[in-house]
Design a protein around this nucleic acid. Structure first.
Lengths: 170, 170
DNA sequence: GACTTTACGTCAGGGTTGTTGACTTTCCAA
DNA sequence: TTGGAAAGTCAACAACCCTGACGTAAAGTC
């Protein structure tokens, strides 16, 4: 109101692409794209007795080796009972190694075994093929925008986790 | 190799942003963002006896009124048995109306009732609030890139369905 | 040292979502 | 008209996630 001119020109600019119809289309795009996003690893996982939950656990253990169960819980956003079921099978199958914490013996630090890393590689390769293709088709500017919007769409806590993982990986 | 200069300059440009690390980050961004994407409607749905599947059905019936069960099957990518359970409850609860086809009596045409439209509005309002906020924060160019990448990420059949819905809605 | 909290694991029970298999009704074509 | 294909429905089962409760071990606190 005070700076009416600037604000109205800004909102006017945005009204052009923030119609309900445009938002509806974006919602559908998100839905269809996510289906594609998970399709390739899913195909690999059905052949084993695994599901998407196993994939997620493997992904983040690979990404943050030595992470604790509690930490993983926060990243995945599931209950410990749910995660435990997944972890139990992964450990039994020799894909994940659980190590009692040195300083705090209550904690279990999680690592991928050689076999676990191999599966992770297989799964993320499959997923990256599609991403790489989409990114190449869309071009660098589109990819930058893509990531900006995704980040803005996250819950604040998730954005924090995401940023921390990015810093670790870089 | 034949047109080494053009190709290498193009791929060189892309190699800068298509590293495995960058792709990994994008995968995580997609994961975290999708969580946010579904969080708001999910919160509303738990209070009723409904889940995400009901939301999807309601969304697409609203989007393509009179669609058949078979058509909806293709959009949602589930088996007809799975969809049927959802539809049965929605019809029983008076949110969806099923009409026997006139030319082909095997088909059922699906419509939202008044109550169905009300719920759809509630759900998509909640979802759009987040999208609108993310889009406003990211800006128009980022949104354009976002949609370009999402479209490139879809399976070809899904991209086709998506495009058709877009044309209908516009 | 007693008490509380934290980290992890597990059992029991229930809900949604997805699948396969078997079935009916309707359409269409040989 | 008969037989196959398509659309939809019903039933049973598995996967995955959730809540709630309980147990154990270790850490932190008074």
């Amino acid at each position: 109101m005070a700076d009416g001119r600037g604000a109205s020109s800004y909102s006017g600019e945005n009204l052009l692409f923030l119609t309900d119809e445009q938002l509806r289309q974006a919602i559908e795009a998100m839905f269809f794209a996510y289906r594609g996003f998970t399709a390739d690893p899913d195909r690999i996982l059905v052949d084993m007795a695994y599901g998407r939950a196993h994939h997620r656990a493997i992904h983040f253990i690979n990404r943050a080796p030595g992470t604790t169960v509690n930490n993983l819980l926060g990243l995945l956003g599931v209950t410990k009972q749910s995660l435990n079921r997944v972890l139990r099978t992964l450990i039994a199958d020799g894909l994940v190694k659980s190590q009692v914490g040195k300083t705090d013996k209550r904690e279990r630090h999680l690592y991928l075994t050689e076999a676990g890393r191999a599966l992770e590689q297989t799964l993320s390769d499959a997923q990256r093929v599609r991403m790489r293709g989409a990114f190449r088709d869309a071009g660098p500017e589109a990819v930058a925008g893509f990531r900006t919007v995704l980040e803005a769409m996250m819950d604040p806590e998730m954005r924090h986790s995401y940023t921390k993982l990015k810093e670790n990986g870089a």
